[in-house]
Simulated assay, not measured.
Amino acid sequence: MEFRFFDPSAKTEVTHGHLPHWEQMNAFYFITWRTADSIPADALEKWQAGREAWLWSHGIDSALEDWQRELECLPEAEHQEFYRLVTTKWHSMLDECHGDCVLRRPELSEIVAENMLHQDGIKYSMEAFVVMPNHVHVLAGVAGRGEMKRLCRNWKRYTAGRINAVLNREGQFWQWEIFDHVVRSEASLRRFREYVVNNPVKARLKADEYRVWTK
């Protein structure tokens, strides 16, 4: 199946939680989800305030439902500035390894990795993923429109159940929301792949503290 990059003129499915989620037909996505204890509340609030300030300075009201459309339609230089100054800070907070970081354990990261590849080539085309101590990055082409969030829910539900069983725990394992981004170009796809592969090095992890896969 041929996957596509973000097209501002194409039909887009938009859903909302704490973050808006955009989905297009047969698109490439860079997706991140994290454990429930991965970012302290005060650090997250500070980051959200910074994001809203950046958006406001570029004429975008984050209180509006379609603010992400306005962001995606900004010139490439401004879009890259947002990623550098806002999105990168969010990822850096994850790399500080807050919380229990139980995914350092190889038998737990293996549960996630095996699930990532279970239906590769059927419902999606996996490009790369990394299981970090308290979060997961995925780069994949997802078949259909409106399937990305459903796919992520299934990944999270299955892995949370398996991991909680090993840990003899109950309750929320993953944070409810995901952080997703429709890939805009071939160059962006390469950058995201490099980020996924190099993330453990950036976070200064030991070889047995993460699990990475790339096509």
Rank of each mutant, 00 (worst) to 15 (best):
R150F: 04
N164A: 11
M148Q: 07
T159D: 10
R145T: 10
E147S: 08
K156A: 07
I178E: 14
K149V: 07
I178A: 13
G146N: 04
E177I: 04
A140I: 00
A143N: 04
N164P: 15
E170W: 10
W176S: 11
H135C: 08
W174N: 05
N134P: 08
V166L: 12
D120R: 00
V136K: 01
G121Q: 07
W155D: 04
M132K: 02
R153P: 12
S125N: 12
C152S: 06
M148W: 01
G121L: 09
I178P: 03
N164H: 13
F179C: 10
A165Q: 12
E177V: 04
M126V: 14
L167G: 15
N168W: 06
H181K: 05
G121R: 07
H181Y: 15
F173P: 10
Q172T: 15
Q172E: 15
S125M: 12
A128K: 06
K149F: 07
N168C: 12
Y124L: 11
E177F: 09
W176Q: 14
V130I: 03
L167V: 14
F129I: 00
E170C: 15
Q172C: 15
H137S: 04
K156E: 03
R169L: 13
R150D: 09
L167E: 15
Y158I: 08
M132N: 03
A165N: 14
K123Y: 07
V138L: 10
K123M: 04
D120S: 08
N168P: 05
K149T: 08
P133C: 00
P133N: 01
F179D: 10
G121Y: 08
V136Y: 00
M126P: 06
G144N: 03
K156S: 03
G141W: 07
G171C: 14
G171M: 07
V166C: 11
V166N: 07
N168V: 13
L167H: 13
